[in-house]
C-alpha cells in the first residue's frame, strides 16, 4: 500500500512542476530514478523510445511505463492518475476564471498576443521533428530523399487530391507506416 501512495505522490509532484509538455517530465523521472531506484537510467532511455513509438501523449506513456516497472498494473494506473491530477485541478481553476473574464478587454488583448505565439511554438516543435526526419543528426549528410518524397506525396494527398483530402489523419499515419516498412525507412 505504501508503495502506491509514494508512487502517486512522486508523479503528482512531477505533474505539478513539469511545465511545457511531456518531455518536460523527463528531468523529474531521472530524479525519481536516482532517489528511489524504482527504475534505472537505461530503462528510462528505453521508455522514451517506446513512448514515442506508441500512441498517446509521451508524458503519459512514460508515467504509465515507469509505474508499471515499479508496481505492476496498479502502479501503471496510479502513476498516471498522479501525473494528471494536478493538471486537471489547475486547468479547471484557470478555465473558471477564463470564462468569467471572457469579455474583458485585457483578457482578449492577451489572447491576441498569445495566438500567434502559440502558432509559432507549434511551428518550432514541427521544425525540430522535421530536421531529424529530413536531415538526420547532421545537416552534412544531406537530405533524406525517401522521407522527402513521402512528405511531398502526403502533402499532395492532404491538400490537392479532392478524393483523399478529407480522410482522417490516421489513414495517412497508417499509409506512412506501410511505406516505411516496404521502402525500409
Amino acid at each position: 500500500m505504501m508503495i502506491y501512495a509514494k508512487l502517486f505522490w512522486e508523479f503528482f509532484q512531477t505533474g505539478l512542476f513539469a511545465v511545457g509538455g511531456g518531455m518536460a517530465t523527463l528531468p523529474f523521472l531521472y530524479d525519481i530514478s536516482d532517489r528511489t531506484g524504482w527504475f534505472t537510467h537505461a530503462q528510462l532511455a528505453d521508455m522514451i523510445a517506446v513512448s514515442e513509438s506508441t500512441p498517446g501523449p509521451i508524458g503519459i506513456n512514460m508515467a504509465t511505463y515507469s509505474g508499471y516497472l515499479t508496481a505492476g498494473i496498479p502502479g501503471a494506473i496510479i502513476s498516471t492518475l498522479g501525473l494528471i491530477t494536478p493538471s486537471i485541478i489547475v486547468i479547471l481553476i484557470i478555465a473558471a476564471f477564463l470564462y468569467a473574464f471572457r469579455d474583458n478587454e485585457y483578457v482578449n488583448g492577451a489572447f491576441y498576443g498569445l495566438r500567434p505565439a502559440s502558432a509559432a511554438m507549434i511551428t518550432a516543435a514541427g521544425l525540430i521533428v522535421a530536421r531529424v526526419v529530413f536531415f538526420g543528426v547532421d545537416f552534412a549528410n544531406g537530405v533524406n530523399l525517401k522521407a522527402a518524397v513521402l512528405a511531398v506525396v502526403l502533402l499532395l494527398l492532404t491538400h490537392v487530391i479532392t478524393f483523399t483530402k478529407k480522410l482522417h489523419p490516421v489513414v495517412f499515419i497508417l499509409l506512412a507506416a506501410v511505406v516505411g516498412v516496404v521502402f525500409k525507412f
Binding site: 514515442e52 513509438s53 495566438r115 500567434p116 502559440s118 502558432a119 507549434i122 511551428t123 516543435a125 514541427g126 521533428v129 522535421a130 531529424v132 526526419v133 529530413f134 522521407a147 513521402l150 512528405a151 502526403l154 502533402l155 492532404t158 491538400h159 489523419p169 495517412f172 499515419i173 499509409l175 506512412a176 507506416a177 506501410v178 511505406v179 516505411g180 516498412v181 521502402f183 525500409k184 525507412f185
Partner: peptide, 27 residues
Amino acid sequence: KNAFGGIRVCVCVLIFNAVIKLFAKAI
C-alpha cells in the same frame, strides 16, 4: 523501426498542415 520512420514523416506533414490552419486564424 521502419514503420516508425514512415510515421515520423507523416507526423511532420500533419503538424505542418495544422500550423497552416492555425496561422490563418491567429495571424
